[in-house]
Amino acid sequence: MSQPLENRETFHHLIKQHPCFNGDAHFKYGRIHLPVSPACNIQCRFCKRGFNKWENRPGVSRGLLTPTEAVEKVAQALELCPEITVAGIAGPGDTLATDDALEAFEAIHHRFPSLTNCLSTNGLLLAEKAERIIAAGVKTVTVTVNAVDENILPDICSYIHYHDQYLTGINAARILIAAQLDGIRRIVSLGAVVKVNTVLIPGVNDHHVGHIAQTTADRGASLFNIIPLIPQHELQEHAAPTCHQLNLAREAAEKHLTVFRHCRHCRADACGIPGKGLDLAEKLYDQPLNTFSHG
């Protein structure tokens, strides 16, 4: 890449205060996930987006916020928990499929310029919206890359909806991978730090994790996070990875990228310091809001 050194410098400074990027910060600093993105442009076979109060997993939220409500929520959350340093949008849909997340970020950045804005996406539209993302003060981006092989991805992603086209199978896989890799390269070249999330699905992509880490590292990603599968939706009958499988995958990835080991599968409306185990969302939302995070 053209400016690796500069990126590394920003990287350290940024992630010191980001609980989802740094093991130490995980216990010290807080984050708020804002459920503002209603729609998704791809369908993962393990993903069932939902709105409820009880499930504790990505993809679930109490309900949706409008961009204006999101700013208010950040203000309230900062009063409850001043340790919050990161405002993230991670669902319940894809953050770039609609403009809601970017509008929310622009408003948050305007009012709380010191907060680090953090965005999670499947990467399908990342390259196209990269400049606007950076302009809205987003400094850390998480891209969920479940495979970089077009023969594996159709087993994980059943369809994509891309520029008014409904695509399935290998064609969808090719376009999604191409868009993700190009998106990572582009956003990194604009100065963002990129974490790659991979959902570990035994028997589907467990042997492939090292390859994902290598390919995304080449494109400028800085961190890697492996999320064990929560079996549901189409993969309901599938086994979740064991601790051993998870460790093997982490070792394979660690050859190429730093692996973040503290991920807690947060909801899309989580709030608080993840390492302390206390979630403030209950206090933040009077009405049970319904959500899903990809963070």
Binding site: H109, H110, E131, R132, A135, A136, G137, L190
Partner: peptide
């Protein structure tokens, strides 16, 4: 040439 968005701040 990258499209330039006006920075919020």
């Amino acid at each position: 040439v990258r499209e330039e968005y006006e920075r919020v701040i």
